[in-house]
Design a protein around this nucleic acid. Structure first.
Length: 290
RNA sequence: GCAGGGUUAGUGAAGCGGUCAAACACGAUAGACUGUAAAUCUAUUGGCUUAUGCCUUCGUAGGUUCGAAUCCUACACCCUGCA
């Protein structure tokens, strides 16, 4: 490590090998990992999220893993605060914070210092959710014509949020902080496909079904975190809607679709330095030209 | 062998004389996304370099009709009932 970095972030689609890269990095530099992942924050969601086990963490501190139960909501704004606090802690210990994760919004919010509007008022949100999309569109159009122009008016969640936050500011930085290195891992689609298939098989073999059963029993199968790829399909399997083999295929399919969506998010970020695999990324980080 | 049902775009599946290039779902492709983001949502999806246009599609080959995915005949394949 020639130039000291204040923070390194690793992004990429699911199953691209981010965790492995982070660990390799941590072997070269004293580092701690901040997980930017909207699913591994949940306790009990281990197998289906490919959460690194304590053993796999190899003594490198991993933050923001298992901080909530699946019935507790979390948000990008909370992540940003938590991660910022952690980065300071880690820096104060003279270690390198490494932000790793596939949740694009989380990483972006942190690195580009998003200013979020206030959180939702549950009563108001429930009220709004009762309404039809067209009603909500009308309401937004009347109360905030400017927002109406920019919001995705066909997306009910977005329209509701826009109504909730009328008059509140939102901003972001357009540039990455100087001392931040943003790495992207993007194996070929064929490679990714292989990794996904292997991983799904492994998850099922390690007891994904019983993990999902126990979570569904505890929290109900309707909680949002259980609408996750890998969990939703297994719930359908438990309900007898597919065979185990179909379930595996569906998980593969939906994971691939997820990976593409993640890539769509990251692709437009021109600050990301992309690598097809961990080796090349490590070589780049270690090169004296940095 | 007789009787009945079926064969529709990448897949499943509607349509059963005109308003059908053909609903819908899935898949695919591209994309959006600042307090749910592994979520949510959008566009396109027969061909023609792009049009209130043309061409080719609804098992195959014929026929009836001004007009057929839709009706008739024959053939092929599949499923079911009786043998």
């Amino acid at each position: 490590m020639v130039t000291p970095r204040k923070v390194i972030a690793i992004v990429g689609p699911t199953a691209s090998g981010k965790t492995g890269l982070a660990l390799q990095l941590a072997q070269k530099v004293p580092a701690e990992i901040i997980c930017a992942d909207s699913r591994t924050i949940y306790r009990g969601m281990d197998i289906g999220t490919a959460k690194p086990s304590l053993e796999e963490q190899g003594g490198v501190p991993h933050h923001l893993l298992d901080i909530l139960n699946p019935d507790q909501p979390y948000s990008a704004a909370e992540f940003k605060n938590d991660a910022n606090r952690l980065m300071q802690d880690i820096e104060s210990r003279s270690k390198l914070p490494v932000v790793v994760g596939g949740t694009g919004l989380y990483v972006t919010a942190l690195l580009y210092d998003y200013e979020f509007p206030a959180g939702a008022d549950n009563t108001l949100r429930k009220e709004l959710e009762q309404k039809e999309l067209t009603e909500l569109q009308d309401e937004l159009r009347q109360r905030d014509p400017e927002a109406y122009k920019t919001v995705d008016t066909k997306n009910k969640r977005r329209v509701i949020r826009a109504i909730e936050t009328i008059g509140q500011p939102r901003s972001r930085n357009n540039r990455l902080p100087e001392n931040c290195l943003l790495l992207g891992l993007n194996p070929s689609m064929e490679e990714l496909e292989k990794r996904i298939q292997k991983r799904t098989k492994q998850m099922l073999g390690e007891g994904l079904v019983s993990e999902v059963k126990s979570l569904a029993n505890k929290y109900g199968k309707a909680v949002e975190p259980l609408q996750t790829v890998g969990y939703r399909e297994v719930i359908e399997y438990i309900e007898g809607r597919h065979t185990l083999e179909e379930t595996e295929q569906l998980i593969n399919l939906h994971t691939r679709q997820l990976a593409k969506r993640q890539l769509t998010w990251f692709k437009r970020n021109k600050d990301i330095v992309w690598f097809p695999n961990a080796e090349q990324a490590i070589a780049y980080i270690g090169s004296p030209t940095l």
